[in-house]
Design a protein around this nucleic acid. Sequence first.
RNA 1: GCCCGGGUGGCGGAAUUGGUUUACGCACAGCACUUAAAAUGCUGCGGGAGAAAUCCCUUGUGGGUUCGAGUCCCACCCCGGGCACCA
Length: 829
Amino acid sequence: MFPYPSGDGLHTGHVESYTATDIISRYWRMKGKNVLHPQGFDAFGLPAENFAIKTKIHPSQTTQKAIATFKQQMNMLGFSYDWSREVNSSDPKYYKWTQWFFLLLYKNGLAYRGKAKVNWCNSCQTVLANEQAEGGVCERCGSPVVQKDLEQWFFKITDLIESKGATSGLLQGLDKIDWPESTKAGQRNWIGKSEGAQFKMEIITSTTPASGHPSSAEEGTKGEVLDYIEVFTTRLDTVFGMTFALIAPEHKIINELKSQIENWSEVEKYIEEARKKSELQRISETKEKTGVEIKGVKVINPFTEQEIPVFISDFVLAHYGTGAVMAVPGHDQRDYEFAKKFNLPIIEVIKSEDRKSSIEKEAFIEDGVLANSREYDNTTSAKAREKLIEWIQKNNLGEKKINYKMRDWLVSRQRYWGAPIPIIYCPQCCHSRPASQYGANLENEKSGSRIKSGMTEFEITEIDGKKYAMVPIPEKDLPVLLPDDVDFMPHGESPLSKSKKFHDVSCPKCGEKAKRESDTMDTFVCSSWYHFRYADPKNEKEFASKEKIEKWLPVDLYVGGAEHTVLHLLYSRFFTKALHNLGYIDFDEPFLKMRHQGIILAEDGQKMSKSLGNVINPDSVVAQYGADALRMFEMFMGPLEDAKPWNTKGITGIYRFLEKAWRISLKFKVKSEKSGLEVKSLIHKTIKKVSEDIEKLKFNTAISALMVLLNEIEKNEEMPIEVFEKFLILLSPFAPHISEEIWSQLGHEESIFKEKWPEYNPELIKEEIIELIIQINGKVRDTISVAVDISETDAKKLALESEKIKKYLLGREPKKIIFVKEKLINIVL
RNA sequence: GCCCGGGUGGCGGAAUUGGUUUACGCACAGCACUUAAAAUGCUGCGGGAGAAAUCCCUUGUGGGUUCGAGUCCCACCCCGGGCACCA
C-alpha cells in the first residue's frame, strides 16, 4: 500500500510492511522471477491542507518535501523499488486518469448527484469526513458537528454488491481471494446484507383510545384508510406479536398525516429534538428509548387485522429499510425496552424448542416454534417465514426483500487539495436541442432526470434553486487542473469556487457561460486505481494499456495496514469490478493475496503517539544500529500480522548477529576444502526452511534459522567458502547492505543480488540416525539412537531392552505398543 | 450485544499441524579474556523436591476424545481488535 506522505516521515509500521515486501521481492528475483515492486504516494489529502491553513504554505510544497523525505528514508532502508514507476496522486498526469475514471463511472450510471446528510462544522465552515467527526466533534476545533443536507456526488457502489453478469459481487468475490478472515468478515459486516420481507399496512383514523391494547377492527368501526406504511422485517415469523409500529422522525409520512395528528405540537417538538442530535449522539444515548405516539391515527396489522398505535422514535433509522418497523416486543430487545417504557402489551408468539426460555425479563430473539399465531401455531420459525411470505404475496401486500447496511460512496469534498471533479454546469446547454426545449424549459425538468441534446444525453441538477445541465468535460480537455492561485482558507464553500479563472468557464458543448464543479474528489478515489497505473505509469493515452495490465495484474501480494479493512480495500474492489463489468479488464478482484502488518506498539505496550512521547523514530534507530538491523529486528519481533511491542534491548540481538557474520567473514579469506558434514546438512536444511518461511511470510522463524546456521558455522574452524557464501545469499533479502558488503569483501565483482537463490539437496537433509523416543503411557522415559529406517519389530525389541524402560515395566507385559515411524514408540501398560 | 483474533518461561516468541513443550533472541547469573571496564566467548536458566542420580508438576480454568492434546470437541474465565439501535 502506498503511503500518505506525512511531514513526520516513515514510522515503524511503514518499515514493517515495506521490509516484508522487499524481502519477498528480492527472494523471487533471485529465484529468477520478474518482480514488479513499485512504490508511490497517496499525496492528496486533508493533513496537508490543514497544515497549509495553519502555516499558509501551499500544500504542494509540503507534500513535495514530505515525498522527498519518504524517498530518502526508503532508500536508506534499502527498499528495492522500481522508482521509474513511481506514482503521485497529486500529479496532474496521474489525476487526469482519476478524473477519467470519474467520467467513466458517470457515463455508465455509476456516479450521480444526490442529496445527503453530511457532517458540517459551523466553526470551520466546512464539511468533514466521517473519520474527522468522531465523537460528534470536529477534529480540528472541537466544536460539535451538525448534520446538513447537501447535494453531493456519489459512486453507486451498492450496484456491485451482488454478482452482475460475469463480474463477481463485492460479497461473492470475497470467497475466492486469499485475505485475512477478519478483513473479509469486516467487509461482509459493512455491507450488512439481510434477507427478509417488506409489506404494507393501512394507516387509519383512530377509533380506539390512544395506545392501549390492540382491538379487532369490527365491521363498521374501522376508521378511514388514510395511507399505507411499509415496513421491512427479517422476522416475519413474529408478525402476530406486533403490538405497535415505529417510524423514524425523518419519515415523510409524518408531514402527510399532519392534519390527522391530534398532538402535532408534541410530535413536532420530538422531531425537532431528534434533528438537532447528530447520528453519533443518538448512538451514544443508547441506554434509554425515547419516542412519542402519533395520536389520531392507527395502523392495522394485516395478519391479525388489529389496530395498533404508531410511535415516532429516534432509534429507528430513516436511511435503512423503509424507515419504519413493525414492533414485536416479545421477540426484539429494542422493541421490548420501548414497550416496557411506554407500557405497551408484549405477546409471546415464539417459544423456544426446549420450552425453557420465556419473555419474562427480556425478549426471546431466537428462532423457535410459533404460538398465538392462529393457523401457524407449532410451525417452526423458518417454515413460518416461508408460508407467511407466500400469504403476503398472494394478497399483494408485499414481497421478499433484501436490504444492505452499506450506502453509496459519497465522493465529493468541499476541499482544495484533491482532484477536481470534471463536470461543468451549464444553465442553458440546449442550443442543439429543438426550440421547444430551449431555455426556461430546463426549469421544468426534474433534478436527476435526463434530457437529450443532439446525440448527447444530459442529466439535470439543481444548484441553489436553479436548474443546470451537467456536462462532462471531454476527455481531450483532461486533466482539469487544480488552480494554484486559490485561497484555500475555509470560507464555507469549496475553495475552488473562489477562483474565477477556475470556476467561470464556457460550456464545452454550447460555448455559453457556465460554471465548473468546485468540489474535489475524496482521496480514496485516487487510491482506488493506483495499482493499475503501476503497470503502465507513463501512458498518456490510457490509464494503463490492456497488455500491460494483463502482464502484471491482478496484484499477487498486497501488504498494508488493517485500518483499511473497509474503506480503501472495498473501494479498490469496486473500481476493479466496475472495470471488469465494462469490459476493460479480465479479472474482477484487484488483490489476490493480502496480509496486514500488525501494529508496532511502544516499549510501554501502548500505542505510539506523539503526545505520549513514546514514538520510535526509524532515523535514530538506523543511526545507532544501521538499516539492516532495523529491518531484521522488525521482522524478528514476531509474526507479521501480530501486534508487537518495541524493545530497544531486543535489537541488540540482531545487531550482534550481523556483527558476528561480519567477524566470521574475515576468517574466510582463505578457502578451505575440508568440510564438516553436519554443517553441510544444516545449510541445506536452512535453505529449505528460509525459502519456505519467506514464501509463507514467516520471517521471524526464517531469521532464527539463519541464527542457528551462523552459530554452527562459528563453531567450525574450517569449512568450504561455499557454505558461508550460501549463508550470505540467504541473509541478503533481510540485510541487503551488509550482505552486499561482505560479498564484495570476499572478492566478488558482481552484486550478491545477481546470484541465484540456492537450491537444497533433499538427500543431504535426510537424517540417517535419529533419536527414537520411547514413551510409557505417553510419557517420555528414554531415547535411543537408531537408523531412520529401523523396522517396527527391531525398534520394539530395542525399546524393551532399554534398562530405563525395564525399570518402569517391572516385568509387566505391555497391553499395546504403538510405533510411529521416525518418531517414537509408546508402550501402553 | 455481534463478528474476528488470542491466552505457552522474567520478556518477544518457537513447536514439522495429534508425537520429546519452551527453538531463536532479550534479560539475568556464573566463568574466561582484561590492571579494570566495554566488547567477545563459554556455561546455566519453566516451577517444585533433592547433595546427587532422579522424581513430580506445567501451555488461562474445568471436563471430554485419544496409546498420546499447546494442537481436536464441550463449557467457562480473561485480553486485544473491528462493528454497533441495521428491524
